[in-house]
């Protein structure tokens, strides 16, 4: 099949999938509401119970699922292309861990009880500090290895501080809440969360999308890309800054959700001819579809138990990761 045609087909199928999963997500929940009723209630302005459930509970959950998933898929694709490393993922830069630390500190200090929005705001601040540290460590134009190493060090430090907060947590309920929050979830999020996260995510998406051409040229390595007119400083700023804004916001409202940013670009890469620029929209759609599907599954598998989203994605993602290593080892031999 013609390559361009296949690419359009992949995007079309993914778009339809995302749309369908978005509707299914809206129709999934403990309250037994028929699909037609739920859709009608969504667009009516009456204040009955069904309308409230749809607009206040399910709609923000579905929107956040879509946006968080797209963020993870897009940033994973950008980072893999930028670092030319198929094992790169949004968590690699230490942004998720630092955002988590910010959020955990508000739970630990009790601020989040008095002022719930302090939690996502502190998480965003954590992401902001992380990007400053990573950029300062990476310094000049090229150094992708320093970015990876700085990210690992930052993740380890943020992880240690998070453990310290757990260690010293004032009471078991706070500790429990910290643990649950870190597992990642979209349960009980409101439109306020959407409005808080959306601007940062949109800004991040625009920055990440602007790296597309540079990522293609980087396929040939840093020197060749630079000689082709790629501004490496600008590309680094867009890739790291875009990841910080979008993944920071995603972590702020959903907690740390792993593996989607790693797996989705991998699954889709062969389908788009491996071109980094083409992978970006496909991976954003794929990430949205996968996160929406996972968030539907956690509600279907254990409706009573509040199964955490991050647990499910890690349970599916980790074996995939092992398979990936096994396969890359085989091709290296």
């Amino acid at each position: 099949m013609n390559e361009a045609l296949r690419y359009k087909l992949v995007l079309a199928v993914l778009s339809i999938g995302v749309f369908a999963l978005f509707l299914v997500s809206l129709a999934t929940g403990p309250a037994a509401i028929g699909f037609a009723d739920s859709m009608r209630a969504l667009f009516s302005s009456d204040a009955y119970e069904i309308g409230l459930i749809m607009r206040e509970i399910r709609l923000p959950r579905a929107i956040l699922g879509l946006m968080v998933g797209a963020t993870l898929g897009l940033s994973g694709a950008v980072l893999q292309g930028y670092l030319r490393n198929p094992l790169a993922e949004p968590g690699l830069l230490g942004i998720s861990a630092s955002a988590s630390l910010g959020a955990v500190l508000t739970i630990y200090t009790g601020v989040s009880l008095a002022f719930p929005l302090a939690l996502p705001m502190a998480a965003l601040a954590g992401a902001g500090i992380a990007v400053l540290v990573v950029r300062a460590m990476a310094g000049g134009a090229g150094g992708t290895l320093s970015i990876i190493l700085a990210g690992i060090a930052l993740s380890a430090f943020a992880g240690a501080m998070t453990s310290l907060a757990l260690n010293l947590s004032p009471n078991p309920f706070a500790a429990m809440e910290i643990v649950f929050w870190m597992l990642g979830s979209l349960t009980d999020r409101s439109m306020v969360h959407v409005w808080l996260a959306a601007p940062f995510m949109l800004l991040g998406w625009v920055m990440l999308a602007l790296t597309a051409r540079a990522l293609d040229a980087l396929t040939l390595g840093v020197s060749a890309a630079s000689s082709l007119g790629v501004d490496l400083r600008r590309t680094q700023f867009l890739a790291v800054g875009g990841t910080a804004a979008s993944v920071g916001a995603a972590t702020a409202v959903a907690g740390a959700i792993g593996f989607i940013g790693l797996i989705v670009p991998h699954i889709l890469r062969p389908l788009v001819g491996s071109m980094p620029s083409r992978l970006l929209p496909a991976s954003a759609l794929g990430g949205a579809a996968m996160l929406l599907a996972a968030d539907i599954l956690v509600r279907l598998i254990a409706p009573e138990r509040d199964l955490k989203l991050g647990v499910l994605t890690a349970m599916v993602g980790a074996p995939f990761f092992l398979w990936l290593i096994w396969r890359s080892r085989r091709t290296m031999v």
Partner: peptide
């Protein structure tokens, strides 16, 4: 360096980027 399994024609086409 060719980081991803892109087709030969696409690699050559990268030369048109400027």
């Amino acid at each position: 360096e060719i980081a991803w399994p892109v087709t030969v024609e696409r690699v050559v086409a990268l030369g048109r980027a400027p």
